[in-house]
Design a protein around this nucleic acid. Structure first.
Lengths: 237, 237
DNA sequence: AGTCTACCTTTTGTAGACAAGATGCGCGCA
DNA sequence: TGCGCGCATCTTGTCTACAAAAGGTAGACT
């Protein structure tokens, strides 16, 4: 439900190629397709009513964005993840997210803020209605939009790559049974609102503090699951 | 000279597809193809002895890496540049380069160092023999290899994107007539050697200081174009 | 019985031809 | 003479068919 292009008739429609791209992105982000899974070209071409060449083009594009990995004469695989990924993520994410958010606070226009609030409304709805996939999707969209508002071509590539695994890490470690984690989800949503306010007020320092707190909240939740053996995440500040 | 795949017979060979990719990358980095230029699919397919589908796949891949930009029903164009690009570059480059170099200093193996020295030998040769394209090519290869040694999937995408424009900016502002800039080229080469030493000694702090000086040297040459100072966002260590 | 080898099947890679959209030119009209 | 509309042409997008390479399987040899 998070995405209109993904759910029903994938085999028809005006722009089947865009549908293929969006659907694959969505499935990978929400881990409907697990990391390491193979993607069959003919199966995808049949599902989306395309021939193999455009499917192969989409594969190359998704590979460039970091969703899948290609190897010669071998099937495409969804980009894999490991504990190393978790470490690498929290090592780099603060740097990139902070830079993107600071720049967004410097450059944002009224229209940018409006677009951000619209996404955040959908995110808040997803959180309140316990729509896990929608939450993952709109959280991704929120941070990606912040990166676009930052308006710096050099920071976006890594941000995009980070967001892919941010979504998947979030999905892996989400446990709806835990009431405290549910409360922290609402806290994350409130942080989004505050981040928007800081960006709207062109206050990079406050935006930075908020995005750091936002990431720390994520890291805290994942540390509970990922670091039972005392994994030392050196960076995080 | 800079690349064995690029210079001679592009129309034949065992792996024409790799040749296409490498040659286009090389031509774009050295600005044999100017930013904003259009790339004709049939022309490329004829030059490299391929049909259009594999050419189109290569286009998608290069677009993912930031070399070209694609638009629906419109010819592919080499990623354009502006003065804004120059500003954006020097705003983000220090952050990414420093992070990559620090991580490389932490993770480098003996084999990594050897590979780095080999590239640096070629770079030094290119500087001494005034081979401009070779200099651009091996400088790119040097910093890219450092990023690979860093061994963090999240920092590489932005580093790759930065390196594309690093090469092109260097090419734009290179003036062989100026003796001082020539000396600074040799200085840059010596900095490479020192960076390798710092990485080999697993000394992230020294590596960071050196890479910052390395970038400052570049920026100084372009000071007349009002390149700003980099964002002061620490990696957190 | 285990292992190596050769074949067969499946999947990826490529080619050539067809369809659709976009650009530019020329003609017609005001 | 200037502007606008429509056609022609070129370029991009897609499809079907064929070629090649990888992996699995069965058979035979050690």
């Amino acid at each position: 439900m998070a995405q209109n292009q993904s759910s029903p008739e994938t085999g028809v429609g005006p722009d089947r190629k865009a549908a293929l791209n969006n659907t694959l992105r969505h499935r990978i982000l929400t881990m409907q397709i697990a990391p390491g899974s193979v993607l069959d070209e003919v199966a995808l071409s049949e599902e989306f009513g395309l021939s193999r060449p455009p499917v192969r083009e989409a594969m190359r594009q998704l590979a460039g964005e970091g969703f899948i990995e290609l190897e010669a004469n071998r099937p495409a695989r969804v980009t894999s993840m490991s504990y190393q990924s978790l470490r690498d993520f929290f090592l780099i994410a603060p740097m990139i997210y902070v830079a993107a958010t600071r720049l967004a606070a410097e450059h944002a226009s009224k229209a940018d803020i409006a677009g951000l609030r619209e996404i955040q409304d959908s995110f808040r709805d997803a959180v309140h209605s316990n729509d896990v996939d929608g939450r993952v999707f709109y959280n991704d969209k929120f941070h990606l939009r912040v990166g676009e508002i930052a308006n710096n071509a050099y920071i976006l590539p890594s941000l995009r790559r980070l967001l892919i695994d941010h979504a998947r890490i979030g999905k892996i470690f989400y446990r709806p049974s835990n009431a405290r984690m549910l409360e922290e989800l609402h806290e994350a949503s409130r942080q989004h609102d505050e981040i928007i306010d800081a960006i709207a007020n062109h206050d990079p320092d406050r935006a930075e503090a908020l995005i750091r707190a936002h990431l720390d909240l994520s890291r805290k939740n994942m540390a509970m699951y990922a670091a039972p053996e005392g994994m030392a995440i050196s960076l995080g500040v």
